[in-house]
Write a protein that binds this DNA or RNA. Structure first.
Lengths: 220, 220
DNA sequence: GACTTGATGGTATGTTTGTACCATAAAAAC
DNA sequence: GTTTTTATGGTACAAACATACCATCAAGTC
């Protein structure tokens, strides 16, 4: 087997093993051994490609944030042929709600890293600041565009609405991870909120309040 | 010193030491030794009062959720002489935004526990489900009351708005913990959102959009 | 005053962790 | 065909951890 090997590919395999292990037992319980076992190799190999555990964890979080960015950009790109701001915003924010198993692993480990970064200053303390700020600016511009197109109330404060949107998205995503809500319900609520924000010109799911979903909470 | 000692008080002291340690170095890095040092005693004493580490962590999360409930009820109680639903809702939701150091410790460790509970099923997997469900019901009833009093648009879906409120509150609180936002800014955004939900009858901070705060993001 | 009990400290022990070291087989280079 | 990389496995080791065990000192109990 010892052919020449694509290092980047091996590293990616090991990092993916780490992500699975972290999603399964928690990031805090990830060890060199558990990663090696999950990857189906030896501890020595993990050392060979990442030297130290800290570097492995760092490489993993880098891959994670990079792929998170890709995911969001993919959503924007595939938001339809000539998407209205509402469609773009909806697509982007829905990304924060984990649906399939892969996205669940993704967001779970991402959340674990985010919380870890609060106390472990070594772990790129400002790694989780840039992306949200950028996203906030993006949402503001989309809201402003909708206002100018007459698809949103011009009296709204675009910045504060953007912050609210970001918080709703993150809060709903977290609640799904915590098992407090189904992904379907979270999606429905997010769309409901967007329906209150944008009028007219809205995506495939029309009608604002109408999309109450299966109302899993029952009557009261 | 070996007088007779109030066990509950000693346990509370040790748990508080654990909370401080967890807020400082992260819950994952808390050890019997670090708790003992933070509490100013020996490891043996921590064993004496909690036997095993797992029981210590469990006792801590119990104390945490209990005090969280107290905090929310305190907020409701001191929400003014004859509070309108908006005042009550505002008071309750603002509790999720950490302001002083004590509440920061509180919410940080609570968040760490919540994320930990996703993967550690031993840690009362359903411990973080009851409180939010109860809260959701409470918010729904407050919104319904406001609608009947004419302080909120009767066309709104009270349940979905309640879920949005919960998500906004959690999302804003998390963003403050992550250092993405100041507590003041988070409070202002939350009040802005409430201003959009309730009209008339509202709390001390009047005017909806007007409360833009110091706008730390600058122009665009 | 003798004795038991409650509260505490110190230390030993077995396990797990990250990392360093030794070994080797296959390919590449010459 | 020998020699040098490259990729991999196994193992050894010091540190840290949770926990169990031994010791002690001050109160209460009789």
């Amino acid at each position: 087997m010892p052919k020449l090997v694509d290092h980047e590919e091996r590293r990616a395999q090991i990092i993916d093993a780490l992500l699975r292990a972290a999603a399964d037992t928690g990031l805090h319980a990830v060890t060199m051994r558990s990663v090696a076992i999950e990857a189906g190799t030896s501890v020595r190999l993990v050392q060979y490609y990442f030297d130290t555990k800290e570097q492995l964890l760092l490489a993993a979080v880098n891959r994670l944030t990079a792929r998170m960015g890709e995911r969001v950009r993919d959503r924007v790109r595939t938001a339809g042929s000539s998407p209205a701001p509402r469609d773009i915003v909806e697509a982007v924010l829905l990304e924060a709600v984990p649906t399939d198993e892969e996205s669940r692993i993704f967001h779970l480990v991402h959340t674990e890293y985010a919380v870890l970064s609060i106390t472990d200053r070594a772990l790129g303390g400002q790694r989780f600041l840039a992306a949200p700020k950028e996203m906030e600016g993006f949402l503001i511009s989309q809201l402003a565009a909708a206002q100018q197109a007459g698809d949103a109330d011009p009296h709204l404060d675009a910045r504060q609405e953007a912050v609210v949107l970001l918080a709703v998205s993150a809060g709903l995503g977290l609640s799904v991870l915590l098992g407090q809500r189904t992904a379907d319900d979270a999606n429905a609520v997010l769309r409901y909120h967007l329906g209150r924000l944008f009028h007219g010109g809205g995506g495939s799911d029309e009608g604002g309040k109408a999309s109450a979903g299966r109302n899993p909470a029952g009557g009261k």
